[in-house]
Design a binder for these strands. Structure first.
Lengths: 213, 213
DNA sequence: ATAATAATTAAACAAACGTTTGTCAAGTTT
DNA sequence: AAACTTGACAAACGTTTGTTTAATTATTAT
């Protein structure tokens, strides 16, 4: 149970904290629990992170660092909208697969009010929206149509994250084996769902336009 | 700030607790905070709910009660798949709109480990899956294809819930006005996205089948 | 009116909380 | 070799946690 690998104490704290935050949520985890799991003295939390919220802050910063890097990597200059979106979804799934716990903590804690992290959250989310807007333009979608983008964009993110959030249910109830084949199919399914979906929306918009004129 | 309406103390506690749980999460809210907001004595929590987790238990029970009722209401015998799914999505959006805080608390707290509620969660989630399976059959989808259903079903739920979860971002950054017109458009957009999406998936499956034979 | 039950209160409880303290050994710099 | 820095520790800090107690008021039934 107790973490005692070759990792440095600071990394052991981070690793233990992430794991516990996923299970119970930030507020429900005590510092003693973390230090016990990480096999470090309790004072090390203040020493390395300036307190408990400092751990969460470090976690969120790490998440956004990796997430924004992934988004930037997901863009290449020459490709069709379909290729671009399929690539983006592929990267997103890979990202959450490789950073499942980090992503879950961020996903769970971000909407919660924690005054000490308010500033950080605003900054990072603004940043992400900026990157996403860039993607949208590059994909040839209509960036003026904020109305629909605010509905569709978050839908895509939620589809990917939800799958990891309900992992235990999928595993126990639906007997899903989370192997490469599964994720390959998952990527294709979500991408097809999303692409056919936005095509359907575009077609509908076109019809409404023609109906009006 | 303090809740002191004509409501009964028990209901005042529930109302205050839901509001606070949405803001900070269950574990981060203290009983004194709840009682102050509800304007009741601290002992009333044990008196009416047998403790703090009892409040969350009552909240989750209320959520599942209303949610399953909504799902049952969403089904009518005679209609096409498209009509059925559009109706279901309409009901889901209406439900989350009318029970936003209740839904957010349930959505946020359900994946977290709270031993005292483990049994309840398993029971209710099993129930929901049962109802959903019934819907799927009635919609003429292939219930054998658990692989895809486990990907698509949760996607639908997450699309609807996500919109309410990031309300504050949509409001502040995208300047969304959450009025009837918005939700009408939201329902149609999500429904079109989802319907076109599953048609695209079905078409792809068909193509793969033909490719193999 | 009186007894019984229900609702509410202030006060106190032990346990757990996050943080800080003072100390010490091991390196590093001067 | 002396001065300083870093990493780690046990112990204790004051505060807050959820819960309980015993007393009191309000309501209902007899």
């Amino acid at each position: 149970m107790a973490e005692n690998s070759a990792l440095e104490p600071k990394q052991r704290i981070l690793k233990a904290a992430i794991s516990l935050f996923v299970q119970k949520g930030f507020a429900a985890v005590g510092v003693r629990e973390i230090t016990k799991e990480a096999n470090v003295n309790i004072a090390m939390i203040s020493y390395y992170f300036e307190g408990k919220v400092g751990i969460l802050k470090a976690i969120l910063e790490e998440f956004f660092e990796r997430y924004s890097q992934m988004l930037r990597d997901a863009v290449t200059e020459e490709e069709t909208t379909e290729e671009g979106i399929r690539r983006l979804i592929g990267h997103m799934v890979d990202f959450v697969r490789e950073n499942t716990e980090l992503a879950i903590v961020a996903y769970n804690e971000l909407p919660l009010d924690l005054p000490e992290l308010a500033e950080l959250k605003v900054e990072k989310i603004t940043q992400m929206i900026g990157i996403m807007s860039g993607l949208i333009k590059r994909f040839g979608l209509d960036p003026e149509d904020i109305y629909h983008l605010g509905m569709i964009g978050p839908s895509l993110i939620s589809m990917v994250f939800m799958n990891f959030r309900i992992r235990s249910i999928l595993k126990n109830v639906f007997k899903v084996k989370f192997d490469d084949a599964y994720y390959k199919e998952f990527k294709e399914t979500i991408a097809t769902l999303f692409l056919s979906g936005i095509q359907g929306i575009a077609a509908k918009k076109q019809m409404q336009k023609r109906g009006k004129t």
